[in-house]
């Protein structure tokens, strides 16, 4: 299950032809307490880089962009009641939505785990 990362701190964990999308642990630590997540509708087609969700912390709203293109096949409804799951377990229970990839080649434009960890270090 390889995971890929964007420079904007979204991740996509590949599971077969689908990927689970969320924000990274570094992102949640920078956002602070998450109080609301607006998720896309199931069935929505997303193009790589388009705003796909909005995460609201106490202080501000931040857009979450689709790491690659695809169709939304599932969303994490548990976040509607418990948005703080993004803080508690960003890479696990705090996932946002599941995407059926339309162009897996787009993954090559993203960072792998090691590259992302190096990238995060540049933020100090």
């Amino acid at each position: 299950m390889p995971t890929f990362y964007t420079k904007e701190h979204e991740y996509i964990r590949i599971e077969g032809e689908e990927g689970v999308v969320g924000v990274t642990d570094y992102a949640q630590s920078q956002l602070g307490d998450v109080v609301f997540v607006e998720l896309p509708l199931i069935g929505k087609s997303l193009t790589k880089g388009a705003e796909s969700a909005v995460v609201e912390s106490v202080k501000a709203a931040s857009g979450v962009n689709a790491p690659v293109s695809g169709e939304v096949v599932d969303i994490n409804r548990a976040l509607e009641e418990t948005p703080a799951m993004v803080n508690q377990d960003a890479a696990g229970a705090g996932w946002f939505f599941r995407l059926k990839l339309t162009d897996p080649a787009e993954l090559e434009t993203l960072m792998n785990e090691a590259a992302y960890q190096d990238y995060v270090k540049t933020f100090g």
Binding site: E8, H9, E10, V23, A27, Q30, L31, V55, A60, S62, G63, V64, N65, F123, G124
Partner: peptide
Amino acid sequence: MSDIQSAF
């Protein structure tokens, strides 16, 4: 995420 800033 568009607006994560490193405050320098």
